[in-house]
Design a protein around this nucleic acid. Sequence first.
DNA 1: CGGTAGACCTGACCGC
DNA 2: TGCGGTCAGGTCTACC
Length: 269
Amino acid sequence: MPELPEVETVRRGLDDILTGHRIEAVHIDDSRLVQPRSSRAVERRLAGATVTSVGRRGKWLLLELDTGDTAVHHLRMTGSFAVDGETLPHERLQYVTDAHIVRYVDPRRFGTLEVGKHAVMHSMLDSKLGPEPLEAAWDATVLRTSLRGRSTTIKAALLDQRVVAGLGNIYVDEALHGAGIAPRVRAGTLSLVRAERLVVAVREVLTLALDSGGSTLSDYRQVDGTFGSMQDRFLVYGRAGEPCAHCGRALRSATIAGRTTVWCTHCQR
DNA sequence: CGGTAGACCTGACCGC
DNA sequence: TGCGGTCAGGTCTACC
């Protein structure tokens, strides 16, 4: 589920709830969650720490702690957080703070939690992630440089977190539609003009999604329990066979880069 | 180097 | 109602 807009929405919710508060206890109920597996050690390591900020890098959430540690969550497909209330189905972890109980829920248990020293966690993320798409440092020239010589499709390239951090299957399809670029275009052949259009389209769709509180499909919701509304604004994702919003022709679907991909064969070249 | 399938899990949904 | 098949927002690994 969660791509950059959903993870950023969760970050803002967690920042409001956790920053400045002391973690009294952590309860982990999923032997797969912690990497590398030692739930009890992580529970002990986090207990007593105060959260100094909640950050995000790509699709990763970072709880910065006054102990010098960073707790790094990845939600994968179905992870989400909720605050207070009753125990939820598929609850895998609780942060019990001096003010709230923060619950991590993940039906499919793909999500991960890693805890380590601040510098270690940040360099781990930097080693696997490219630039943030909403930061000015990422532009058409940077994008073209990262795509140079790559024969793979633009769809696969945008899903590659080393090219740009935070896009997933939904927002790649939406951005390619916005930019008028077909998903099978060879990444290394993108002209500067088209790269500029793509950067603009990525920023537009991510900004719209952030303003909508993210997309709610089945699992995702905001930390306060409210739903996002970006799913109502998708122009291509989940709309195979429906008319293109621009030209009215039926949207086409195929598997590209191993993922279901939807696009308009007329508007996207 | 690059690409694609398979694995990791569970639930929802569809057709019979 | 129940069963089997298919699909899902992500990433990593094995293999060609």
